[in-house]
């Protein structure tokens, strides 16, 4: 692994965790545009984070959460219907 690719791994990890400085973000955007392997790595790390989320101790939200969602969605839908 070259030094550049190793650093690419840092950038990809930072991108996946949404923790890049504006400068790093610019560098990462340039790199991923030019590098299919970087895009593949980013996609893989997104998948890793989605699995990692499932490790959390399982809990269920109270029914009031769904009620709140329904109410907000209806409120957003109203203006376009009238």
């Amino acid at each position: 692994m070259t030094r550049g690719h190793r650093h690419g791994g840092d950038l990809a990890a930072g991108a996946a965790l949404a923790d890049l400085t504006p400068r790093e973000l610019t560098r990462w955007a340039r790199r991923r545009a030019a590098c299919p392997a970087c895009r593949a790595l980013e996609a893989e790390l997104d998948g890793v984070l989605a699995e990692l989320a499932l490790a959390a101790s399982p809990r269920l939200p109270p029914p009031s959460v769904l009620d709140g969602i329904r109410a907000e969605i209806r409120a957003q839908a109203e203006p376009s219907r009238s």
Binding site: G9, A12, A43, D46, G47, V48, A50, E51
Partner: peptide, 24 residues
């Protein structure tokens, strides 16, 4: 952090089926 993520990717391997297929 990077090496932890890469290790998880390697261990989870093929079972990362929610990962975006297009890019891979």
């Amino acid at each position: 952090i990077r090496s932890a993520l890469l290790r998880l990717r390697d261990v989870l391997g093929d079972s990362l089926s929610d990962a975006p297929g297009g890019a891979v």
